[in-house]
Amino acid sequence: MTNVNVLFFASLKETLGISEYQLAGNFPMTIRAVKQQLSAELAKGDALLGVGIQSSIDYEFARDADLVASSAQEIAFFPPVTGG
């Protein structure tokens, strides 16, 4: 098992009630699998499975099928971005 830091932003952070979480997982695993594990471990974790929730691995936007390597430093989940 490896620990990876997971961050949450904006409405997702408010729904989950936390901004950060240490995830112990069997990496490499896909973003989809990370979402599923988090949804089981966190209160209101189902919010992670909602349509449109985006993710990043070490600051790069990721897709559900992308693999999180055991060397990854930080994963984040958030709703679609709305800057500008």
């Binding site: 932003f9 904006a10 409405s11 990043s56 936007f61 984040a76 958030f78 709703p79 679609p80 971005v81 709305t82 800057g83 500008g84």
Partner: peptide
């Protein structure tokens, strides 16, 4: 601007 709107980590409230 187009990329900033869709591919930069900002959220408005």
């Amino acid at each position: 601007m187009d990329y900033l709107k869709s591919r930069a980590a900002f959220w408005k409230k």
